[in-house]
Structures are given as C-alpha cells and as structure tokens.
Design a binder for these strands. Sequence first.
DNA 1: CTGAAAGCGCTAACAG
DNA 2: CTGTTAGCGCTTTCAG
Lengths: 332, 332
Amino acid sequence: MKDVAALAGVGIKTVSRVINREPNVSSATIERVRSAADRLNYQPDIHAGNLRRSDRRTQTWGLLVGSVANPFSGAVHRAIEDAATARGVAVFASSLDDDPARERLAVTAFLRRRVDGLILTAASKSQGYLLPEQERGTPIVFIDREPSGIDADAIVSNNAEGAALATRHLLERGHRRIAFLGDRHDIQTAVERRRGFLEELGRAGIPTGDAWVIEDLHDEHAAHAAVTELLRGESRPTAVFSAQNLITMGAIRGLRDRNLQSSVALVGFDDVEFGDLLDPGITVIAQDPDRIGRLAAERIFTRLDGEDIPVETVVVPTTLIERGSGEIVPTE
Amino acid sequence: MKDVAALAGVGIKTVSRVINREPNVSSATIERVRSAADRLNYQPDIHAGNLRRSDRRTQTWGLLVGSVANPFSGAVHRAIEDAATARGVAVFASSLDDDPARERLAVTAFLRRRVDGLILTAASKSQGYLLPEQERGTPIVFIDREPSGIDADAIVSNNAEGAALATRHLLERGHRRIAFLGDRHDIQTAVERRRGFLEELGRAGIPTGDAWVIEDLHDEHAAHAAVTELLRGESRPTAVFSAQNLITMGAIRGLRDRNLQSSVALVGFDDVEFGDLLDPGITVIAQDPDRIGRLAAERIFTRLDGEDIPVETVVVPTTLIERGSGEIVPTE
DNA sequence: CTGAAAGCGCTAACAG
DNA sequence: CTGTTAGCGCTTTCAG
C-alpha cells in the first residue's frame, strides 16, 4: 500500500480510501491510485486491515462437516458457500469423520484464523468448550445435530418424524416384521431415527420387541454383512428401514445377493443418487441439504448483523420419495 | 496476549515463546503462562503474528473446483484436506461452475487473505493473470486441467488415453457405430477425451466421419435429450461413449426410456456411484481423485519447502472398470 | 479533499 | 532464561 501511495504520489490514507471506496476523494485521485494499484498488482491484506478495523471482521467462516467427500455434506457446503460469497465471505471447510478430537483441532484452527462465524455438525459429546467463543460474540450454528452443553442455533431435519413416516409407509402396506438398520448409537440423528421407528411401531400396536433393531453399522460393508445375516434366518423381516445413506447402499447389496430386492421392501433415510435408476427404484426419506445450508448461512448473517433474536432450532422437513422398493407388499 | 502476560506476571515476549514452543523458557514459567492462557481462553491470532513473521506464512491454502457439491471435486478436496491438516494448514474452498468470472473473484478473495498456495481447476481461457502472484513465490498447482498463459505444475488424468481405452474396448467387441457424447467443447478435458476417441477410431481404420460426435452437453438433462434423439434414428449407434459423469447419467436414462440398456453398449468416463448396482452395471473409465488431490498437496508443500524443482505436469492413470454395459456386443 | 501519527496483536532483533 | 523496542500493513483519529 505504501508502494501504491508512492507511485500515485499520494498519502497512504488516500490509497486506503480508494481501496475501501470511502467518500471524499476526487475522481482524478481515484484514477491515479487505481492505475498505480493495477500496475503493482496490489491486493490489500484483509487481515492486516482487520487488526485495526473497528468491526474486526475477517469475512471468513469455518464449516465443519462429516466429510467434504460425502454428497450430503457437499450439498450443504455448496448452499452455504453460495450465500457466503454473495456477501464477500470466504469459507473454510474441514472433515471430522465423527471424531471429537478432529472437531477440537478444526475449531482451534479456525478460531486462530479469527473466523466471524462457525457452522458445525458436531462430533463431540458436548460443545461446552465453545461457550467462551460464543460469549465473545461469534455466531455458532449447528447443522444436522443439535448442540449439547451450549445454547445455540441449530438447523436439523425432522429425523424422528421422517423415520416414523417411513415406518408408517411400510405398515400401511401390510408389513409387520420390519427391521431397523441404524448408524452408531451415539449419534444424535441415529437415536432420533430409531425413536421415530419404534414409536410408530408402538402406535400401530406392534410390540417393540418384535422389531429387529440392528445398530452401530458404521459403513456400507457392515450394513451389507448385517443384512446378509438378517435374511438368512427362518423368520426374516418382510421390510427393511435403513436409517442412513451408506447403510441403504449396504442393504441394497445384501438384498441383491439373495435376489430379494423385489420381495423384501426397503425404505432408506437420506436420498441416494441413482435411486430411481435401480430396479426396483429405492424409496427414501429425502433430506433437504440445500435448505439446511441456506438457513444456517442466513442465521449467521442475521446474528452478525446484530439482530438479537432468541436462540432457536429450526426443523427442516423431510420428504418421502416413492420409487418402488418401499411399495413392495409382504409376500408371506 | 498482553492479558495473558499480565496474568502470568511475565513479559509479552515470554508468552510468545511459550505459545510458539520456542526454547529457553523455564518449565515453571511455561506452566504459569499455559494456565493463564487457558484461564483466559486465549487463542493466538495467526494473522497478526504473520504480519511480522519472517516466513509470512498463513498456513492457509485456497482450493477452486467445479463445485464442492460434485462427488469428484469432493474426493479431491478431501485428499487435499487430509494432507494439509496433517501439517496444520487450513483450506478455503470455492465452487466455480466453470465460470471465469467466479474464478477471478475467488482467486482475489483468497489472495487478499494471503493464502500460501493455490490449487485450481481453472474455468478461464488463460490464467496469465496469476503470473505476478506466482513470481511473488506463491505455489500454484492446476488440477484436472492444464494451465494456459502460465507455466505451472498440473495434476491431470490421462484423458485422451482413457477415452482411447474406452473406445478400443468397444471396438474389440465388434462395435463400429459408436457415438461420442461430450461436455462443453471449450473445456480442455472434453477436448482431450474427444481426441482420444477419434484417434482410436482412426487407428481402427474407421472413417471419423462415421462417428456420431455430440458435444456441448452441459448437464444430465441435455445428455438425456441428446441420447433420446440419437436412438430414434434408423441407423442408430450400437455403442455410446459418454465422456463425463452427468452425461453418463443422462445416457443411462435415455437408454432405459427406450429399453435399450441391454442392447446398446455404454462406457462412461468418470466413475458413477452405484454403477455396479444397475442392471447392466455401468462400465466406466475411472479417475483417481484421491491421488490427484494428494499429489497436488504434495507439490504445494514441496515448493513451499523451497525445493526448486522444474515445473511439471503429472499424469494420473485412469482405469477401465468392466461392469456389463460396456461388454454388450452389437446385435445388428 | 488529503495526510500524519498512533496503534491493532504479534514476532524479530537485540539487550540484559 | 527473560524483557524491551521497533515495525509488519492496515485503519482510526484528528488535524489541516
């Protein structure tokens, strides 16, 4: 900036004014500064300025998700990015793999870079460690899972209702022996989905004990194995509710292995790409990652803009998409 | 930091030493400073320090991809993130949608935040505008596409060879009437893939004019429509080579609409999730996003570490994955 | 309309 | 082993 000022033959403050589009600079001066800056390929250092700026905004956010390679996270990320860049905000992203230690490291890394806001799918048991940062005024929004140990905004899907909807869908088609395939039992969404499933069975008067509830399936492989085992028994379920993306993939494989994909019903939670190209198509409870991301970004902006609204959990509805696998009726 | 120093009863420089794990501090002092920092929830400001630090490293990179919502980009992103965080580097990500204007904006946004390195899938015609930054010492690595207007490292797939491999695969099964479905013709990878296709046809002695070459299919919908149209004619192709992810999806739909998925062969470029669950499975030329990301990150680190190696384009091999659709033989 | 001086949080260079 | 002083690139404040 000093160099630009020297080249343009003006004071350093005048360059600052031009760069920041502040008023009270003659257009001739503006032009001189502009061309000097261009000639030197000058890019202002946003962080140096931030050191002295009164609002102390870095125009940067930190985003923590399961994994940036996961399609759901990717869609959420994209929605957040679109909202953020529209207002000049750059976004850091970090993958947690549901590992609390990684969460702490990523949060620390972002805080040291003085992000203006934090959006996270927490992997830790409690996020109380974020309290001091929140009190310092940094907006924090949780997505996908609600926070614990801290009172903060959250944007989540209606997991229990979605699971109940899936279950009801199967019940209405006459299924009574429905298996539940769930993710790690310490993940909040997994718990909610199981609850929705069991409660719906309860409402239908089906003794919960009758349900096959298989949990802690942490990847496609485990789900595949579990389904294979499940279908081997004498009294096997007539329908399967797979409560997560990868588990659905494993379930599809398991059903195919035994050539049961057209006789055992399947409803998955989370949309699967290609779901409509399979035969039968895969019926799912679809989440709305785009909306989740957009709402999270809006919430951060609202708080940064100084509005003192109460902390809130926004529930984003899920949708049942019928494609065939969920409409199979029990044969036995 | 001043506050921490006051609370610990030491000078500010001593706090700096402790935070940065510099030597020559008594362990008693370290302990006092540590607990004071903890009590105040102190997080050092990496950017303030950077202003004065001799190496001027922000430990931050910028990544520009097609879209963070795209599975290929997501996989590359993840590989880069893993390499980066292992050495304390945080990663900005931005989606370009193949829009040159977005590329410029994102680059500017990152440069103002003083990233130490830039990894990009360029959308612009020429990246000459990056020359001053490169001369300033910022490592720049291109992924997926080679740069133009600037001499810089690149990590790319062997697009032409992969396309030739796909084409040869079809030729070997007796196909002579093969259609090519391509992305926007101004995208380098699309051009390369078309070249590989046409050259392989040439080697087989098939007059290039005989080939159906349909280009500028920029999304799944356009590809779907193109395939539908293509299959309507009297002398339709016996095989289709779809040269990109979304185009393959559209092609699958088009073939299914006419119930030709088991009579017209299909090979796609880019792996498609679920490819093995379809019937027939989708034969593809798979790229290696993980390796691309890893190599890009390594290249940045190597240059940051000061090694003055020559600029190089690393070609990452692609793999043919046979799943059924590409092994269909011509019926006519 | 323009510029000089001070200071943001930190590290380099030096002195004790 | 520890502290002091200067200054990184910028914005704030205030004086022209």
